[in-house]
Nucleic acid binder design. Sequence first.
DNA 1: CGGGCATAATTGACACGTCAATCAGCTTGG
DNA 2: CCAAGCTGATTGACGTGTCAATTATGCCCG
Lengths: 151, 151
Amino acid sequence: MTTRRFPTQEELRIWRDFIETGEKVRTEMAARLQKDGLSTGDYTVLLALSEAPGQRLRSSELATTVGWERSRLSHHLGRMEKRGLIRREECLTDNRGAEAVLAPAGLELFQQVNRPHLRDIREIFVDALTPAQLQAAGEIMAALREHLARE
Amino acid sequence: MTTRRFPTQEELRIWRDFIETGEKVRTEMAARLQKDGLSTGDYTVLLALSEAPGQRLRSSELATTVGWERSRLSHHLGRMEKRGLIRREECLTDNRGAEAVLAPAGLELFQQVNRPHLRDIREIFVDALTPAQLQAAGEIMAALREHLARE
DNA sequence: CGGGCATAATTGACACGTCAATCAGCTTGG
DNA sequence: CCAAGCTGATTGACGTGTCAATTATGCCCG
């Protein structure tokens, strides 16, 4: 069987659904977090730091942990530092390096926001799907990711 | 049975997978389109206009067609107009109104990019999934969307 | 040792998205 | 008819993301 060159109408519809629904879900979650003064990026960084030993991480480790490009992280840390959520320290073992450290204000805000955020995940995502759909979603995401990685 | 307040570890893992994988897929597609000089937003607008009668649409219709907020569309059309991909015309039946019209350069670029883009959808998305997964993906997106709408 | 390359991180320029404010023109009820 | 309010669209400010260039340091090999 030859590989079809183009997607069918139905495949296209699902692709667009995938993109648009993903956008809507992210937007909704971003709006909810925003009410507590955090962007999704802020939350991601605070979560990673709060789980790190000493609540600090090298910039590059943090970047791979959250799956961001270096420069994106650098810009984001700059904004978070300005707001007092984190601070930066020099790395003792590598003078090129920098460490991001969770600041008290950042920790407090994170703790304040975390439970409501988890509830929102349940409300927006988990409660929308049957257990079978949830599992299928996990498998689909894994398949997409794997496929992307091998290109 | 009482509703659990927080997601389980597994549910949380799937949520994060959903967000991160979606981001990776969109980023990959955006990078491919970018090689031809289009953002995903550009493509969305060009597609909608190219399918519209007279290749023109009122701003507000265009906004609902692509599912964007007005101001987002307005900014985007401004950028596309500057590049000569579209132009704006006044609306005859409503003096407040504006119409976006596909410009020749926009049509040409869209036609040039469309087939490669469709191939990319197949490569990145359709080919990564089994037919069953694809169908499941469609159902999952529908469920999420429906759930969001009824909040 | 030291020149050249790799790596850590930042920066600047620019595209993008959201929010709140604004402006102009339509519409309607007293 | 006209003031009040609604609607279509734009704007400015700001946070965010990407790309390319830059800075500074580490490291390796000749």
